[in-house]
Nucleic acid binder design. Structure first.
Lengths: 346, 346
DNA sequence: CTGAAAGCGCTAACAG
DNA sequence: CTGTTAGCGCTTTCAG
């Protein structure tokens, strides 16, 4: 192979390395003819600069890290797509890391981001994340961090989220409006330090409807398909089973549908279901799944854009933005439109 | 921030840079006490070596590139998950690049992989890919390339695929067996240079059933949701509409279901549907979607493992492997089991 | 066992 | 306009 480098080009052309370097970067202090000959030879020899030598010297990697809990989820897939698109366009490279919802992994990964490998970090935190010291450390190293979707309450950084409070409120109110009296919010494990505006919106709507908000109304599903299945099956088999479910993430909709099938529960008439989900399958399910659809691709694009903007400034801490995008309640048959008189109680 | 580096550690300890470096890499030529003091200080100051300086020197990046056409697809999501898992375990970093099915983008991306940025490449080629010169070039630079799922016919490289021929054959035979006379294979655009064993298996099964294999039996869907919808709607509205469909990728199942709903076509009784898909939604659709399920996560893991193995050897070209994993025909109601006498023909 | 020194390939300041 | 030079932070001989 004998990698072609500046030295080779310089020797070949009888120029100095510095001159060749400048010519390639189209410096104004190089004559047009020299540039042309350099460019020609570079193309002929298929020259491609060594990015790490350049990074080392310029202290800039043109690389960002995307850290997410999971990739087999349509929200995160679409977000990655948005991020990658913007990055490709701006000439950045995207390193991807999965935490599998483990704080320990998340920490280890961030450890690896603060030594110059990346210029910035986009993160959606794991469910286990209970501290922000790992984020702080990154910021102390002047690495900008932008949160998207899953953010931490107290962190000082740009955040791109959706209107979780409002949409959960709206979805819950919708169920109340359809006559549901016993609404359960299906969550994934305990989110100790994560913003949980979804739950807050849920509670607010229940409170307004005077539906007693006891602890049974939040059901935590373990981070494991089999136990989640058991948990939901138990929930739907009980005496006092819910007549409305709000599922906090996409992957919870599937067991709900499957279990209703098994137990002979009619979704829509006996149980209304709403899910935070961006999946295209929602429309072809029977009954169609009512979703709170987040603009996942858009979130990715904006998060990347905000990060790149802060990379341009030297001071990482300057302009913190918190952008909240609207999500959309897409009503389908699993929790259909229905204008019941809202006082049919007793 | 004042990045802590070897120089700082060395000064602090009154040692030379070289000694500190060796101590950190646990070299046998350093005394135990020295190692201990170095390690202690390194931990205390939170030292983390600059990966690019190291890469530059060692000519090794500990980074691989994953190049795929699309990420919003359960197959690719799961494959990435498998790749990332193995990479994380082996201390490698994963750069992700999307081609959006464009050969031009694919070429540009590979261009960026041959200058030392990555040690190896995992790729699933775009549908437009019509030449392998971009791959050749990478290999000339001694960068090992491993193909997964979507491979090129003539390329000399390791490939991890599934038994596309057999599974398409089996799926087609299954439809024939159910009495389908007019089976259409829904493909995505023309795949000129890509292996297309799926189509070959499809044709073989049709030929064996003496179902005339005219050109109408392969329908190409454009790389665009709206036109795909139109194409399929036209297909299912025609006089001579199919009674069986084999969809080559996950995303084609959704418009098929949606359009059947619109047109009042009963999937299962009037139209049998099989799809190459790994989606978990298959089981909760009504009717349940019969799928050819590829071991996507496994493919990712194996592809990464094969790549890492070839990185260990100096000679990239040595041990080419072609691993073919079985996929599974999961029969559900969209194309149910049914033992018709197979000779009801005329 | 430790130190000195030469670079990996590139950039950028400074001279000429 | 072009060349020289001094590193970026690390690894790795080779001496001592």
């Amino acid at each position: 192979m004998s990698q072609v480098n500046l030295q080779l080009l310089a020797k070949e052309l009888g120029l100095s390395i510095g001159t060749v370097s400048k010519a390639l970067r189209d410096s104004h202090e190089i004559s047009i003819e020299t540039k042309k000959s350099v460019l020609d030879l570079a193309k002929k020899l298929n020259y491609s600069p060594n990015p790490y030598a350049s990074s080392l010297r310029r202290k800039r990697s043109n690389t960002i890290a995307v850290i997410i809990p999971e990739v087999a989820d349509s929200f995160f897939s679409l977000a990655i797509k948005g991020i990658e698109e913007v990055a490709q366009q701006k000439g950045y490279h995207v390193l991807i890391y999965l935490t599998y919802e483990s704080y320990e992994k998340e920490q280890k990964i961030l450890e690896d981001c603060k030594n110059g490998r990346v210029d910035g970090v986009l993160i959606s935190v794991s469910i286990e994340t209970t501290s922000l010291s790992h984020i702080d450390e990154l910021q102390e190293h002047n690495i900008p961090v932008v949160f998207f979707d899953r953010t931490l309450e107290k962190v000082t950084a740009s955040k791109i989220t959706t209107d979780d409070f409002d949409s959960a409120y709206k979805a819950t109110a919708h169920l109340v409006n359809c006559g549901c009296k016993n609404i359960v919010y299906l969550s994934i494990a305990d989110m100790l330090f994560m913003n949980n505006n979804r739950i807050a919106g849920f509670r607010k709507a229940l409170a307004e409807a005077n539906l007693n908000d006891d602890t049974k109304q939040i059901v935590n599903c373990p981070n494991n398909a089999a136990s989640t299945y058991t948990t939901i099956k138990h929930l739907l088999s009980g005496e006092d089973k819910p007549d409305g479910i709000i599922a906090s993430v996409e992957k919870l909709a599937i067991p709900v549908y499957a279990i209703c099938d098994e137990l002979g529960i009619q979704i829509s008439s006996q149980l209304k279901v709403v899910c935070f989900s961006t999946t295209a399958y929602a429309q072809i399910l029977k009954p169609g799944l009512t979703t709170i659809t987040q603009p996942a691709n858009e979130i990715g694009k904006i998060a990347a854009t905000v990060l790149f903007k802060s990379l341009r400034k030297a001071s990482a801490s300057a302009d913190i933005e918190h952008i909240v995008l609207p999500s959309e309640l897409q009503i389908r048959e699993s929790a259909p439109e229905c204008s019941l008189p809202s006082n049919t109680a007793d």
